[in-house]
C-alpha cells in the first residue's frame, strides 16, 4: 500500500456518521435572503466594477474580491473619494462627500494613513440605511482613496448595537495596505473587545463627529492580523456594564 492508498484509506476511515444534521430551514432562509438581495440589486440596475464580499455588505473597492461561481459581481451601495480636488479612479464609484470628519488611525502605509469616514448610501428597499462606513487611505496631499465600504442592507443604520464588521477578504493573500478589521457600534460603548478563540483583542474607538451615538472601532493589525475572523465581540459602557 503506497502513500496515496494510505491517504485515501485514512480519509475514508475517519469519515464520521452524524455529520449532516443541518438546520435545513435556516439554510433555506439564508438562501432566500441571498436570492432576494441579488434580485433587489439587479432590479436597481446598480452594476459597478466592484464586487461584494461577506454576504453583500462588504464592498471591496480596491479590487474585485472573491465571487462565488456563477454569481455576477454586484454592489449594494456606492462610496466616494471625497474632496474637491480628489481624483476618482475611472473604475471606481461616483464621487460623494464624506459625512463629518475623516478619522485618522495612525496606521501608515508609507506616506498614506489608514482613515475611516462615513459616506451617504442608498440601498434598494432599505430606506433606513443612509450611511456607510468607508475604510480608506489618506495620502500626504490629503487625497482620499476608498478601499472598503461597509453598510447595512436592511433595517436601520442607527439600530443600537453592532452593525456589520468589515474584514480583509483573505488572511492568506494580504495586500501591502491591508484593511484592519473595523465596524461601528451604536450606543454608549467605551470599550469594545473581540475574541479569537479564547484570546481577547481590544479595539480602538472613536465617536463619529455627526452623531455621538455612533462609535467607530477598528483592530490594529498588530493585535489582530487583517483578514482573521473574530469569534466574538462585546461592548461595555463607561461604568463597565456590558451592552
Amino acid at each position: 500500500m503506497n502513500e496515496t492508498d494510505r491517504l485515501r484509506a485514512a480519509i475514508r476511515a475517519t469519515e464520521p456518521e452524524g455529520w449532516g444534521q443541518f438546520d435545513v430551514e435556516a439554510i433555506m432562509r439564508e438562501g432566500r435572503r441571498l436570492r432576494y438581495r441579488r434580485r433587489a440589486v439587479a432590479g436597481a440596475g446598480v452594476m459597478l466594477s466592484v464586487a461584494v464580499a461577506a454576504v453583500g455588505v462588504l464592498v471591496v473597492l480596491r479590487q474585485p474580491g472573491p465571487v462565488e461561481p456563477g454569481v455576477p459581481p454586484v454592489v449594494t451601495a456606492t462610496a466616494t473619494t471625497p474632496g474637491a480636488g480628489s481624483t476618482v479612479d475611472p473604475t471606481g464609484p461616483p464621487e460623494k462627500p464624506a459625512l463629518g470628519e475623516v478619522l485618522g488611525t495612525g496606521i501608515w502605509y508609507g506616506g498614506d494613513e489608514r482613515v475611516f469616514y462615513f459616506v451617504p448610501v442608498e440601498v434598494p428597499r432599505a430606506a433606513g440605511v443612509t450611511i456607510g462606513l468607508v475604510a480608506g487611505r489618506r495620502s500626504p496631499d490629503g487625497r482620499l482613496t476608498a478601499d472598503f465600504l461597509l453598510n447595512d442592507f436592511e433595517g436601520s443604520d442607527r439600530r443600537p448595537g453592532f452593525h456589520q464588521i468589515g474584514y480583509e477578504p483573505s488572511a492568506v493573500v494580504v495586500p501591502a495596505d491591508p484593511v484592519p478589521t473595523f465596524g461601528y457600534f451604536v450606543g454608549p460603548a467605551a470599550r469594545i473587545v473581540g475574541s479569537v478563540g479564547k484570546r481577547p483583542v481590544a479595539a480602538q474607538l472613536s465617536r463619529w463627529s455627526e452623531d455621538s451615538d455612533v462609535v467607530i472601532f477598528w483592530f490594529h493589525p498588530k493585535s489582530l492580523p487583517p483578514g482573521q475572523r473574530l469569534d466574538g465581540i462585546l461592548a461595555w459602557d463607561a461604568q463597565d456594564r456590558q451592552l
Binding site: F22, E30, G31, L34, R35, R38, G70
Partner: peptide, 19 residues
C-alpha cells in the same frame, strides 16, 4: 467546517432553480 458547509448549501439554494 459547519460554517463552510452551511454557507455553500445556502448559496446553492439561492441558485437552486438554475443548478
Amino acid at each position: 467546517a459547519e460554517d463552510a458547509t452551511q454557507t455553500a448549501l445556502a448559496r446553492t439554494y439561492a441558485s437552486w432553480s438554475r443548478v
